[in-house]
Nucleic acid binder design. Structure first.
Length: 270
DNA sequence: CTTGGGACCTGGCTGC
DNA sequence: TGCAGCCAGGTCCCAA
């Protein structure tokens, strides 16, 4: 599942290949993934456009075009972007060729991924909360957005309109590192807990970026290598295993319909 | 407005 | 061994 660290890794590894290059051919194999343009219109509007920059916002990948339009991609659950794949698998949904003869293939097993061509990025990502790794994401910013919400802290962490980029597995890792139970109410955390949470959000995400993301399920990097962040997971997808701190069995509870893994001893409910 | 639950999607797993 | 049905979770949509 591509979350912030995975999309950041994809952005970092594709950027040197696409910056300054122009689209030479665009093919849509699955019209369902394209928004804001028809299947015929979409390639026509994209070919010959030059990529000025590649950015990440939350879990979205944004190609800034010289025309000031933006091509935006979201990989959702199972999407991957492959650089010069030797063969197309049956899940290829779109292919993009560039003036330097590279090709990027958007492949997505579950067809939940999405691609937009928009006049400006805000039309797609305008409602996202702050970037948790930016300097703007201060302790005060976190404290103020949490105090407004009487929802489980796990639900708050993965709400993209509150904080952009955190998904189910990193939310679990962050809450374990902060020793906070996923069902605690967001507006009931103590100032000290919020301070620890703020530090853990940044540490967990930076650490995962340094490991090039977590290769659980389908995530692979554009050139085919795996990420290694999953090797450091303490609770995410560790149901039935033992807590590395205290040896208690990792438990699973549903929060807003999402499986949430935690240590009942290290992360107690008051 | 806030919160919670279901739909979407499909490969892999579970259990009969 | 075969297969129906459940599960995964990012986001959107709707209802209370």
């Amino acid at each position: 599942m591509p979350e912030l660290p995975e999309v950041e890794t994809i952005k970092n590894e594709l950027l040197p290949w696409v910056r300054g290059q122009s689209f030479t051919q665009v093919t849509i194999f699955d019209p369902k993934i394209v928004f804001c343009a028809s299947t015929e219109e979409f390639p026509r509007n994209l070919v010959a456009q030059r990529v000025e920059n590649l950015e990440r916002r939350g879990k979205y990948l944004i190609f800034d075009l010289a025309s000031k339009k933006v091509l935006i991609m979201h990989l959702r659950m199972t999407g991957v972007l492959l650089l010069n794949p030797r063969t197309f698998d049956s899940y290829a949904r779109a292919a993009f060729s560039f003036s330097n003869d590279i090709q990027i293939v958007f492949s997505d097993r579950r067809r939940l991924g999405a691609i937009w061509l928009a006049e400006n990025a805000d039309a797609v990502v305008g409602k996202l909360g702050p970037e948790p790794l930016s300097d703007d994401f201060t302790l005060d910013v976190l404290a103020q957005l949490l105090e407004k919400h009487h929802i489980p802290i796990k639900a708050a962490l993965i709400d993209q309109n509150l904080i952009a980029g955190i998904g189910n597995m990193y939310a679990d890792e962050i809450l374990f590192a902060a020793k906070i139970h996923p069902l605690r109410k967001a507006n009931a955390l103590t100032p000290q807990e919020i301070q620890i949470l703020h530090r853990c959000i940044r540490e967990i995400l930076w650490s995962a970026i340094n490991s090039k993301g977590a290769s659980v399920n389908t995530y692979i990097r554009p050139e085919g290598q795996l990420g290694t962040a999953q090797l450091a997971f303490k609770v995410a997808h560790q149901y039935g295993k033992l807590c590395p701190l205290c040896g208690t069995s990792i438990q699973r509870v549903l929060v807003r319909g999402r499986g949430s893994y935690f240590c009942p001893n290290c992360q107690p409910l008051p």
